[in-house]
């Protein structure tokens, strides 16, 4: 299970990486925005995407839309972990096909719960 973590703040990437490691996911790669994440995804081998929303360059929503539009990537499970908390944004992300949505600040338990739920559904 290889996970791509996308966030423009390195500290947040590190926090998520550590939490994922505690959950038993040791194989993670990182990108600092959508435009650096997309080539990594297109290269293949990523099984799960955790992304922030508000980033310079390509935002998380744009990344989500691009992934869903790509026939090779459209089935990739995506968890959004973001400080964006407007209702219209959550609805927009849901419409774009996000698999889970976690608002910052979050706890390790919430992250685990959402990830478990996603894998339960995806199988």
């Amino acid at each position: 299970m290889k996970i791509l973590i996308v966030d423009d703040f390195s500290t947040m990437r590190r926090i998520i990486k550590n939490l994922l490691r505690d959950l038993g996911f040791n194989n993670t790669v990182e990108a600092d925005d959508g435009s650096t994440a997309l080539p990594v995804l297109k290269n293949g081998g990523i099984d799960f995407l955790v992304t922030d929303w508000n980033m310079p360059g390509m935002s998380g929503l744009e990344l989500l839309e691009q992934v869903r539009a790509d026939p090779n990537l459209c089935k990739l499970p995506i968890l959004m972990v973001t400080a964006e908390a407007k209702r219209e944004q959550i609805i927009r992300a849901a419409q774009a096909g996000v698999n889970g949505y976690v608002v910052k600040p979050f706890t390790a338990a919430v992250l685990k719960e959402k990830i478990d739920k996603i894998f339960e559904r995806v199988g």
């Binding site: 508000n54 935002s59 929503l61 744009e62 964006e84 219209e88 944004q89």
Partner: peptide, 11 residues
């Protein structure tokens, strides 16, 4: 909306 509003105050 697409780019993000940033962290919200007075949630």
């Amino acid at each position: 909306l697409v780019k993000g509003h940033g962290p919200q105050l007075h949630k």
